[in-house]
Amino acid sequence: MQTIVLAAGQGTRMRPLTEQYPKPMLPVVGKPIAAHTVEAAVEAGASRIVLVVGYMEEVVRDYFGEEYAGVQIEYAVQTEQRGTADAVRAADSKLDDAPFAVLNGDALYDGSSLTALFDEKPSVGSFRVDNPSQYGVLHTTDDETTATGVVEKPADPPSNLINAGAYVFPGEARSWLDVGESERGEIELTDVLSRTCDEYEVSVVPFDRWLDIGRPWELLEANEWKLDAIANDREGTVSENAELNDLVFVHEDAEVRPGTVIDGPVYIDAGATVGPNAFVRGSTYIGPDAKVGNAVEVKNSVLMDGATVGHLSYVGDSVLGRDVNLGAGTKVANLRHDDEPVETPVKGELTSTGRRKFGVVMGDRAKTGINTSLNAGVKLPMEGTTKPGETVLFDPES
């Protein structure tokens, strides 16, 4: 199955993490989101992959190269992000006349469901959600086995069965990609899906598990998903005075120092150091060359490449960007006193995370002064700083 993976967008809702980094390349347990997508596609039967790139395309190219997971990788460039159909159209010259699959490079798909999608062609992936008005909602036959159309973000959804952004189109659909702009001003692949539904019987394939990763707390959720399946390997340097419980992966080039307690699932990547006397608990991903210092507690968080949490600090339910540096004694709040879901700004609008516990999001190279306190839901922009002893109660960009 020739497979297109869309990886060209800027990911504006994921800011500040994507100010200088493409969203599909954000880390989920040791590899980029898009790598999980490509690997799942290969396991499902993809014979070659066309990656549609655009924003910071060199990061994607450098990671995947000309071959990945045993299959050929080709690239198509979407010069302007004008919509999903426009992205697929950018890859048209790479396709032959056989059926082709399209997947989003910023989503996770469970492997068995993706295999079923590839086996049923043409087909569209589906998933049930509590808030269908935020997605494309499928129109189906009464038994929900065949798609008859799709409506984008309806105010009054016909059901809670949404389009999971995974498709297998007939080869003929290549000639239908030159569609006009939608009401949202984009050239949308859902218009091509609607045409396919008119011309063919399109199977609806329910996904057992699926996650669209568009906002920072969904990156936490993605890591929580994949951490449940990590190998329980302690290949690195682990002090005999450290205590590791449940699923804990320690890369061969990582170090866990004396007095440290780790309650998994936790993944410690290459070059990372933890401790001494640190407490790390799941679900937590500690990225390459990250540092968790003396008497630090980290809980259910993502620390990207080179992030440093200085001694006597607490970080909970948070995402720290690349080369973030927390001064000693930094404390992160992750719970509202009224127990309501934590809110955080997304594109200037205060948005519920849907999570009872959520800490902070810090852009690349942000720094805190010693004894800084950060309130639940705070974002610090890329290279943002705080003063020693400062308390931050709001997003400085909101």
Rank of each mutant, 00 (worst) to 15 (best):
G348C: 10
A231I: 06
G293S: 14
T115G: 09
P381L: 04
A85H: 05
P288R: 13
R365C: 01
D233T: 14
L117H: 02
G236H: 08
G9N: 12
T196Y: 04
E343P: 00
G214D: 09
D212C: 09
G369S: 09
L326N: 03
A91I: 03
V298I: 15
L117P: 02
A307N: 11
S47N: 11
A107L: 00
T353F: 10
G165H: 02
L303T: 00
G316K: 02
A41H: 00
T12G: 02
T115N: 04
T12F: 05
K331G: 08
A8M: 12
V77I: 15
G70K: 08
P157C: 06
P258G: 07
V5M: 13
V29W: 01
F127E: 00
T115A: 15
D246P: 03
E201Y: 11
K153D: 00
V192I: 13
K379W: 03
R209E: 15
R174D: 00
P258R: 14
D62F: 00
F169R: 05
T351H: 03
Q72S: 14
L227C: 05
G11H: 05
R355L: 15
G271Q: 13
R15S: 08
F169W: 09
L177T: 08
L326A: 02
V296K: 10
M14N: 05
V60Q: 04
Y200R: 14
A231T: 08
L227N: 10
T260Y: 07
V5W: 04
V168E: 06
R195F: 03
G264L: 06
D130H: 13
D246K: 14
I187M: 07
L103D: 00
M1H: 08
Q134R: 15
V53R: 04
V296M: 08
I286Y: 11
V256G: 07
D339V: 03
V137T: 10
E397T: 13
W210K: 12
G354H: 09
D228S: 13
V256K: 02
S126M: 06
G236E: 06
S93N: 02
T79K: 15
A41Q: 01
L380N: 07
L380P: 03
F118P: 01
P288H: 12
D317P: 00
G359D: 00
S283E: 07
A295Q: 12
E183R: 13
Y314P: 00
V168H: 01
F127M: 12
D208Y: 03
E66F: 07
S239C: 11
G271T: 06
A278E: 02
M14C: 07
E19L: 11
R195D: 01
D178K: 14
D143P: 09
F279M: 07
S301P: 10
S239Q: 04
D289K: 11
E58Q: 14
D110H: 09
S123E: 01
G259C: 11
E349C: 02
D86P: 02
L95K: 08
